[in-house]
Each structure stands twice: as C-alpha cells, then as structure tokens.
Write a protein that binds this DNA or RNA. Structure first.
Lengths: 119, 119
DNA sequence: CAGCTAACTAACTGTCTGGTTAAGTAAGTG
DNA sequence: CACTTACTTAACCAGACAGTTAGTTAGCTG
C-alpha cells in the first residue's frame, strides 16, 4: 500500500517537471542516448543525468548499456499506473454525479453544516 | 503554450503529494469543508490549508463561501488535462510500436550511433 | 599507449516545499 | 457585547530539488 503510494508520489513528481515530461515525450517516439536527450535543452549534461535518475527511480524509464552509450527506454507500465489513479478518481466522480447530483442540489441551500457527505 | 505547460507542472506537482491525492479522492465523493478534509490526517489545519491552496492554484479545486465555511469542490477538467497528457503520450508510444517495431529490429545491429537496446 | 567521447558522481548554491506555531479575520451564538 | 467556530496569513525551519562546475569512470580509436 505504502509502496504503491510512494510509486505514485515519485511518478507524479517526475511528471511535474517540463524537462522530464519532454524527455518522456521524446522516449515515447523511441529509445535515445543521454546526449540525444540533452540536445534540445539549454542545460548541462549532469542536469539531464539527474532528471534521468529521477525518471529511473520511479520506474518510468530503464537504462541498458551499449558500449559507452546508455540508451534510455520508456517503461509504459508506470505511466499507466499514474493514468490509472486519475481514471479511478474520475470514475468515482462520475458515479457520484450519477447518484447524488439531484440530492446535492436539493440539500444545498438547506444544511448549514455543509453540503452533503458526512460519513 | 507555456501556460498549458505551467498548468501541467502544477497539476502533476499537486498530485505528487499523498495527502493532496487523498483530498482529491475525498472530494471526488462530494464537496467538503476544510475541517472535514483535515479530519483523517495527523496534521494541523494550516497544513491542510496550504495543501488546499496548492490544489486551488492549479485549478484542481475551487472554493466557495457558505457562512464561515469554505466548501471545497473538485474541478474535473484539470484532472482530465493531466490524464490527457499521459493518454497522448501513450498514443504516440503505441503508434511508434505499430510503425517502427519491425524497422527498429532491422537496424538494431547496424547503426552504432544509437543502437536501440540490444537484446 | 594517449586521447577522445559518453556519461556519471561529488560538492555546492539558491530556491521551493511541507510542516510547524502563533496570531488574525470573518461569521454565527450566548 | 464577548465568545466560539472556521479558516487564513505570517514567520519560521528542516529537508528536498533544480541547476551549476569540476573531476571521474568506462569504452572506443588511432
């Protein structure tokens, strides 16, 4: 449980940086080396290296070794789990709306302690 | 362009915190006041208030005023845009696989500058 | 071998973050 | 009116983070 939480923590945190999202975006189009990934950015290589480490730590990418190159590979599963969390949330939200919309409208102006859910 | 980027930045950053995800989760089940949201957590109220401000700044929640209560409301649209980014990425990834899988296998042992990942 | 390239680690810096306590605002209630 | 409730703002602190430069490791090449 806590592990899954941590994984989500680090995944969303990883995706919170535009440089890292761009890297993920790039890798979705195919594996790439560190230098190739660094090229589009006005940033030193160690900076990119750090970003890659962040992406690697949450499992979003994996790195193999090919001579002195370290090709980076996007791992879709972790991306899926992030999307999955949002999706699940959305499902709850939709269900709630299906079931409670009318009720909420009804009590909205009546109950001063709040609106609806107290359980 | 940059604005959309910033929005994604702050949205993913907001979702990177387990407390904030729990709050979003809770709000998916219905609006709630600050005290109600704070109840499950071993945290002082100002702490929760800060989290709510983070969620509000990226547009994930909105707050109205009902007497001295500030009911929080989840805004689905921003959540959708985060899911949308991932979804788009996934689409690229899938397309790439459809189109390039064969090709990549082909050049894999030929081009030393990149070389995919050897297996 | 020397020397180049790819990439990493180490150490440092300024900034952002998550949490706290203490004090302040706004609205309902005796 | 004073008092309580609901919540916010301010000030502060420890730790994480994005980025840098400088130096290091690993592997290819002449």
């Amino acid at each position: 449980m806590a592990a899954a939480q941590d994984r989500l923590d680090s995944t969303f945190a990883a995706l919170a940086d535009p440089t890292r999202r761009a890297i993920v975006d790039r890798l979705a189009r195919g594996d790439a080396t560190v230098n190739e990934l660094a090229a589009p950015f006005a940033m030193t290589l160690p900076g990119i290296s750090k970003h890659l480490k962040v992406l690697e730590r949450c499992g979003l990418i994996s790195r193999t070794r090919n001579a002195q190159f370290r090709p980076c590979h996007l791992e879709r599963a972790v991306l899926d789990s992030a999307a999955g969390w949002i999706e699940e949330n959305r499902r709850t939200w939709t269900e709630r709306f299906d079931k409670l919309d009318q009720h909420l409208r009804d009590i909205q102006t009546v109950d001063p302690t709040m609106g609806d859910d107290d359980e």
